[in-house]
Amino acid sequence: MTAARLPSLDALLAFEACARLGSFEAAGGELALTASAIAKRLAGLEERLGQELLSRSTKGLSLTPTGHEYLPQVRQALALLQAIPLHQRASQQRERLRVSSTPTFARQVLVPALPGFTAAHPHIELELTLSVPLLAEGDAGADAEIRHGAVPGDIAPAQVLLHDRLTPLASPTLLAKHAPLQTRADLLALPLLRTPLQPWAPWLQAAGLADAAEPDEGPRFVDLGLTLAAALAGQGVALARLSLARHELADGRLVQPYALTVPAERQYGLICHRASAATEAFAAWLHAHCATLAENSSATA
């Protein structure tokens, strides 16, 4: 029986962090290594596999087709290793941390990055629950809450996680069915998706279309993630946050037809309800992760 070409655990951790964070520097910061050490571990992994996993460019790192296929397998393997009881330090007391989050932020920003938090803080058992922003229904038992609201009314400036910008996003399929968008006014010929969480007025005014009315036809989505899903399905154009749609933009499932963006009036913020070492660790990690996302977005803009 031929022995499998098993890579080192350190190399797999480096690959997962690079794929998630988009740069050697960010991955090194998370794993307490230099960018050079991370790059060497990734290069060694690719040499062992005989396949390129991440493309290097001035804009950062991006998954190759092989990397896209390999990443979920690596994450599954790491999760299994972390779950083995003998890998848990008996001397460490596990501390439970309950975090409540809006659905879209949890799905698009938080959950993909959780392996990094678990690797850095294996003694913290994070429990994630969802809230309903429009109905103001949160988790009364949560230690920390990711809230979508006005600044400084609902969220203090220091609690803001991402300073989001809004712009129309559409699927290539939808755009192919209509005449090319040559002016901003041409957008009004397409179906505009609507949600009470984000009116179109700020972008329309900045685009010189202040006289255009809010869309009043079609489904009304009480969730930003559902609006993105409808845009991906070609049902209309979403006024979306670039931070939430970065994956869909990177792989071409959504297109940004106009360069014009406007700041969001409501932001995502982290509110800590109970002080503890676990809460402080999670807050520091999430703010750092969101800062990295913001840096990567500005670098590719």
Score class of each variant (00 low, 15 high):
Pro7Asp: 03
Ser8Asn: 05
Ala14Phe: 09
Glu16Gly: 01
Ala19Trp: 02
Arg20Ala: 15
Gly22Asn: 01
Ser23Thr: 02
Phe24Val: 06
Ala26Val: 04
Gly28Glu: 05
Gly28Arg: 00
Gly29Tyr: 02
Gly29Pro: 01
Ala32Pro: 04
Leu33Tyr: 08
Lys40Arg: 15
Leu42Glu: 02
Leu42His: 10
Glu46Tyr: 09
Arg48Trp: 06
Leu54Thr: 00
Arg56Ile: 03
Leu61Phe: 02
Ser62Phe: 02
Leu63Ala: 03
Thr64Val: 00
Thr64Arg: 00
Thr64His: 00
Gly67Ala: 06
Tyr70His: 15
Leu71Gly: 00
Gln73Glu: 14
Gln76Ile: 00
Gln76Trp: 00
Gln76Arg: 11
Ala79Trp: 00
Leu80Arg: 15
Ala83Cys: 11
Leu86Lys: 00
Arg96Met: 13
Ser100Cys: 15
Ser100His: 07
Ser101Gln: 10
Ser101Trp: 07
Thr104Lys: 02
Phe105Thr: 06
Ala106Met: 12
Gln108Cys: 13
Gln108Lys: 15
Val109Cys: 12
Val109Gln: 14
Leu110Ser: 11
Val111Trp: 12
Ala113Tyr: 12
Leu114Asn: 04
Gly116Pro: 00
Gly116Asn: 01
Thr118Val: 08
Glu127Leu: 14
Leu128Met: 14
Leu128Pro: 09
Leu128Ala: 02
Ser131Met: 05
Ala136Gln: 15
Glu137Val: 11
Asp139His: 11
Asp139Val: 10
Asp139Thr: 13
Ala140Cys: 14
Ala142His: 13
Glu145Tyr: 04
Arg147Gln: 14
His148Ala: 10
Ala156Lys: 12
Pro157Glu: 14
Leu161Asp: 07
Leu162Gly: 03
Leu162His: 06
Pro168Leu: 05
Ala170Gly: 12
Gln182His: 11
Thr183His: 12
Thr183Val: 06
Thr183Ser: 15
Arg184Ile: 03
Leu188Tyr: 08
Ala189Trp: 04
Pro191His: 13
Leu192Thr: 05
Arg194Met: 02
Arg194Tyr: 08
Trp200His: 07
Trp203Ala: 08
Gln205Trp: 04
Ala206Gln: 07
Ala212Met: 05
Ala213Phe: 08
Glu214Pro: 06
Pro215His: 05
Asp216Met: 09
Pro219Cys: 11
Pro219Asp: 12
Pro219His: 03
Arg220Trp: 09
Val222Asn: 10
Val222Phe: 09
Leu224Asp: 11
Leu224Arg: 07
Gly225Leu: 06
Ala231Tyr: 00
Gln235Met: 09
Ala238Pro: 06
Ala238Thr: 06
Leu239Ala: 03
Ala240Trp: 07
Leu242Pro: 00
Leu242Asp: 10
Leu244Ser: 05
Leu244Asn: 03
Ala245Gln: 01
Arg246Met: 10
His247Trp: 07
His247Met: 04
His247Cys: 10
Glu248His: 04
Leu249Met: 02
Ala250Pro: 01
Pro257Gly: 04
Tyr258Thr: 14
Val262Ile: 13
Glu265Gly: 14
Arg266Gln: 13
Gly269Gln: 09
Gly269Asn: 00
His273Glu: 12
Arg274Tyr: 08
Glu280Phe: 08
Ala281Asp: 01
Phe282Asp: 01
Leu286His: 04
His289Lys: 06
Leu293Val: 05
Ala294Glu: 12
Ala294Asp: 13
Glu295Ile: 12
Glu295Ser: 11
Asn296Glu: 11
Asn296Ser: 14
Ala301Asp: 10
